[in-house]
């Protein structure tokens, strides 16, 4: 298997890594770089627990070859609120509105919803459903997640 040196930005910091061609971004982040905030779930691109942003776009890092990250900006849950920093209104709303229970889907939910609010600062209910349907949650039934997004967007009724 060929090895490649890649340079990318991880949560604002320049990084280099040497990866095999088939190394998945999820494994690069979690196993090689110790960035374990991004969670492993199904590994087949369905559950969304592994969601990260590539140049602002949400992707499933379990399907994304790490070499593709070369020259790109990768943003993970660790980069949503900078270390020790203040929570974003969305993160705060996830706590207050019951946006999580077990929390395993939460990094992916918050990463996806952060991108949603960047693209649509005042999303309609339909836009929320459409955008978030790739992030499964077994615990909340999605009610608290939707409330959290609407609260952060200021559209909660």
């Amino acid at each position: 298997m060929s090895r490649h040196e890649i340079r990318f930005e991880l949560n604002g910091e320049a990084r280099t890594a040497e990866v095999e061609a088939d190394r998945l971004l999820l494994d690069l982040l979690r196993a090689d770089l110790g960035a374990t905030g991004t969670k492993e779930g199904c590994r087949i691109g369905i559950c969304g627990t592994c969601t990260v942003l590539i140049d602002g776009r949400p992707i499933s890092s379990c399907l994304y070859p790490a070499v593709y990250a070369d020259g790109r900006k990768v943003r993970t849950i660790e980069g949503i609120a900078p270390d020790g920093g203040k929570l974003t209104p969305l993160q705060q709303a996830f706590i207050e509105q019951g946006g999580f229970q077990c929390g395993i889907c939460t990094p992916g939910q918050i990463v996806s919803a952060t991108a949603l609010l960047e693209a649509h600062p005042k999303p309609t209910e339909d836009e929320i459903r459409r955008w978030m349907m790739g992030n499964l949650c077994r615990c909340t039934g999605y009610f608290g997640i939707r409330r959290a997004i609407e609260t952060a967007a200021g559209t909660a009724r």
Binding site: G37, K39, F94, T106
Partner: peptide
Amino acid sequence: PEERVEGREKVTGHARYAMDVP
């Protein structure tokens, strides 16, 4: 309402699950 004791850890990706233990 309550504020979950582990809320901050869970919304920042710092909550430790078995898969995360180094």
